[in-house]
Design a protein around this nucleic acid. Structure first.
Length: 426
RNA sequence: CGGGGCAUAGCGCAGCCUGGUAGCGCACCUGCUUUGGGAGCAGGUGGUCGCAGGUUCAAAUCCUGCUGCCCCGACCA
């Protein structure tokens, strides 16, 4: 991609209505723009990041044997009456009527639709176990949306639903998806923790959350300093009937090993064992070898758009975003340091650009005639991990100047060593 | 929903108190000079001043009502 063709609209000043750093930086770097409270446009650079998040999720879900589907955003309210959740969900469910005066809602989650669907498509116990997932826009009419796409009303989520013959099968499937989640979060390149959680409005028994660690996180997490024990502090407060989550710091860990330590996290993933709650309320029965089976369900969510904000919350400095390479809108940017004047610099850029493109590197070529300082500042704001600077210096020594986003010091490499050096930096 | 704040160009803001028909910085466009860390000069584009009423010869400015957005709280995958 050439910067001269890219709409990336960076801004020098913080937007006045943004509070947390990820929100400010997403606006300034031209990733998103607000349409209405809790509703956002995703611009080309932001969409590219979101796409990388989605693709990592997609690949690992597919590797885990899950199958991708797409369910509708608009759902008939009758399904929510059938599950009994119409009233439980309350005003967060945005309800409206079509021209025939039938009630519909914008889907905040899809247990109802998937269970209803499976009554159609699951006809034999031989089809189980099966896990279906989608990556799709959800809508929850939050009381107070805030912090940009971190807590928005409309957001992109991957939600998966599993169906098993019995509890043992569900346990196996749950562990399998849990493993896939560990791979997904590892590939994101973020510092995260897995904690025990409350299953909340979705219902069910066991539940764990994946949290991206960040001081600005809305959730407080409690960890044992001597064991793997980790829990959402709010749940622990509930279990122990404590008053205040912060009072947990330094107390004995409930598993009897070590003391509790607290950290803040952003909830980015949540996995549940639902059991038969929805299969029962929808009367989903599958023909077994002798008798009919009410399947055991699990559901598994990842907030794809929230991951983008969480990644920034965890990885930024005073200059801007510092993407982990796997989420960066571009892996490498070529900065043309002397625009206009020197034809040989442009030719060199084109050489390198073609080399990288043909080797599958996702590269941006900053070919505009902006002054070098502006280009450096923009690219650092957007947070591209590796910059290749091509100007007089590079031409004179027939070497390329590489600078990583994290490191101030440039590295000089030869044309031939470029690909290997980039691999090492990953 | 309770409490607080804001609404003037794409972004950040001034003007409002004391009414006279809109301005600054950034961005954007043109030209010239510049070019390794957010350039300079000159010229230019862009605004029914959130909406609707009212007062007045005259309203961004005063009055009334409404809407939207932000922050704190309750709530929340």
């Amino acid at each position: 991609m050439k910067a001269s063709k890219l709409i990336f609209a960076t801004q020098r000043e913080d937007p006045s209505d943004a509070e947390i750093v990820s929100h400010k930086l997403m606006i300034r770097a031209g990733l998103t723009r607000q349409v209405s409270s809790g509703i956002y446009n995703w611009l080309p650079t932001g969409k590219k990041v979101l796409h990388k998040v989605e693709n990592i999720i997609r690949e690992e879900m597919n590797n885990a044997g899950a199958q991708e589907i797409l369910m509708p955003m608009v759902q008939p309210i009758s399904l929510w009456e059938e599950s009994g959740r119409r009233n439980q969900y309350g005003p967060e469910l945005l309800i409206f009527q079509d021209r025939h005066e039938n009630d519909f809602c914008l889907g905040p989650t899809h247990e109802e639709v998937i269970t209803d669907l499976c009554k159609n498509i699951l006809t034999s116990y031989k089809q189980l176990p099966v896990t279906l997932y989608q990556i799709q826009t959800k809508f929850r009419d939050e009381i107070r949306p805030r912090f940009g796409v971190m807590r928005s009303r409309e957001f992109v989520m991957k939600d998966a639903y599993s169906f098993d013959l019995n509890q043992d099968g569900l346990d196996l499937t749950y562990d399998n998806i849990r493993e896939a989640y560990l791979k997904i979060f590892n590939r994101f390149g973020l510092d995260y923790r897995l904690v025990k959680a409350d299953s909340g409005a979705i219902g069910g028994s066991d539940s764990e959350e994946f949290h991206v660690l960040a001081d600005s996180g809305e959730d407080l997490l409690a960890f044992s300093d001597k064991s793997d024990y980790a829990i959402n502090a709010e749940l622990l407060v509930e279990l122990q009937e404590d008053q205040d989550p912060t009072s947990l710091e330094g107390k004995d860990s409930p598993d009897g090993k070590g003391k509790l330590k607290l950290k803040r996290g952003i909830e980015a993933g949540h996995i549940f064992k639902l059991g038969t709650k929805y299969s029962e309320s929808f009367n989903l029965k599958i023909q077994g070898d002798k008798e009919n089976i009410t399947p055991y369900m699990g559901c598994y969510g990842i907030g794809a758009s929230r991951i983008v904000a969480a990644a920034i919350e965890q990885n930024h400095d005073e200059k801007g975003i510092i993407w982990p390479i796997s989420l960066s809108p571009y892996e490498v940017v070529i900065v043309e340091a002397n625009p206009k004047s020197k034809e040989d610099i442009k030719a060199k850029c084109e050489d390198i650009y073609n080399l990288l493109v043909s080797n599958g590197v996702d590269v941006l070529w900053e070919d505009t005639d902006k002054r070098p300082g502006v280009k450096f500042a923009d690219m650092e704001l957007i947070g591209i991990p590796v910059m290749i600077i091509i100007g007089d210096k590079a031409l004179k020594n027939n070497q390329l100047e590489l600078k990583t986003r994290k490191d101030e010091k440039p590295i000089m490499v030869s044309h031939e060593d470029l690909l290997n050096t980039l691999k090492e930096l990953n």
